[in-house]
Design a protein around this nucleic acid. Structure first.
Lengths: 204, 204
DNA sequence: ACAACTCGCTACACAGATGATGCAAGTCCG
DNA sequence: CGGACTTGCATCATCTGTGTAGCGAGTTGT
């Protein structure tokens, strides 16, 4: 599953011969700078990205033909890490609660560093879109297992719960830059399962 | 409080004499079209906005000197409705749970129609920023009251809870275009207070 | 060392968006 | 009705961002 890795493709786009070492380094520098810059301002110009990377704008254009190609490569990079993070948590085999916690921690680790690229779930790149779709399915499958195991209530709506889960992860990634992923994961899972209310008030 | 209304300013920017009836209508049409267009694509051009409003682009520029001015006016409009919606729920005087529910329903009613403009909380306009800051304070005050009343657990972190609450409202506004505000408000409050987990599993 | 590669710089072409202006036709309101 | 206002249209200037090309200097890897 999550067959992103099946083609065993490398960091560089398929079909290109290997780059010289310094060129590879420059490319990485640009992508990291793009992530930093675009996460602050999604409309940032190539000029700003180049400046953040400490290279000339023409160099950026040499490595990435168009702005779209740059963002696409960024999305592929982040998506690979995203899929790997989810996969490593064994969301389909581990006990639901363990899988939920581990997946949350892993994803948070990626999300804090690749926030912009991961927000581009509806990418023009079909591979990126497919992976995000797969992860969504995996997530809902996990929630169904959790419901059947009695971890989630029997009456919860799975798609809504997934949306809430995504939103909680997003908020946690935004809010806690200083806290470590485990602490944040605990917060997210705890909030998702228990909410913020007292156990049994006679409300509504 | 929420002294947005203290200056008794009208819909039109301060300092301008009243517009003729048709001009006022055109202005409203443009603002509504801008909201529709920009909520779909935040980078939409003046041309697209004008087209959506059924007017010439030059007319838009006549009413709003710059693009920034248009967006700013939009933000002021939405902010006024936002503040009024919160105020109408008596968040500082009604019983916490009632206030929470009513505020949620009111805000959802505004948010579904003015999603783009309300997402511009960190506006360049200091008045808009101040109102959003006031609402944030009101929200946290409400949560503190709720905590003291035993509606929220004693150990919840208020800022985090507020962030979660905002995120839930956002998700609800996105997800349920067809459902009415009351149904969505119930969903949001229910999710916030109870979460999605079963009451007392022996977890963690 | 030497060939191949890479980068910075300058310059240029191009497209799209913004904003201003004047004029003619239509509309509102006293 | 008649003056004031508003709108559409055509036009123009300007600006910003994107993308291309060539040259010289420096670096890499064999």
């Amino acid at each position: 599953m999550l067959s992103l890795m099946t083609t065993q493709r490398q960091s560089t786009p398929a079909g290109t011969r290997p780059l010289r070492a310094d060129a590879e380094r420059t490319m990485t520098t640009i992508l990291e700078a793009a992530e930093r810059t675009l996460s602050r301002d999604p409309a940032a110009t190539m000029e700003q990205i180049a400046e953040a990377a400490g290279v000339a704008r023409t160099t950026v254009h040499r490595r990435f033909a168009t702005r779209e190609a740059l963002i696409d490569t960024l999305a592929v990079w982040a998506t690979q890490r995203f899929a790997a993070a989810v996969d490593a948590a064994h969301p389909d085999t581990a006990p639901p609660l363990v899988a939920l916690y581990q997946t949350t921690a892993n994803v948070l680790g990626v999300k804090t560093s690749w926030g912009f690229a991961m927000s581009r779930a509806s990418s023009a790149n079909p591979e990126v879109a497919r992976v995000h779709s797969d992860v969504r399915d995996t997530c809902e499958r996990l929630f169904r297992r959790a419901r059947e195991a009695g971890v989630l209530r029997a009456d919860v709506d799975i798609p809504w719960t997934r949306r809430v889960y995504y939103a909680l992860i997003h908020e946690a990634a935004q809010a806690g830059d200083e806290k470590d992923a485990d602490t944040l994961a605990t917060l997210v899972v705890d909030t998702l399962l228990r909410g913020a209310g007292t156990p049994h008030p006679d409300r509504l």
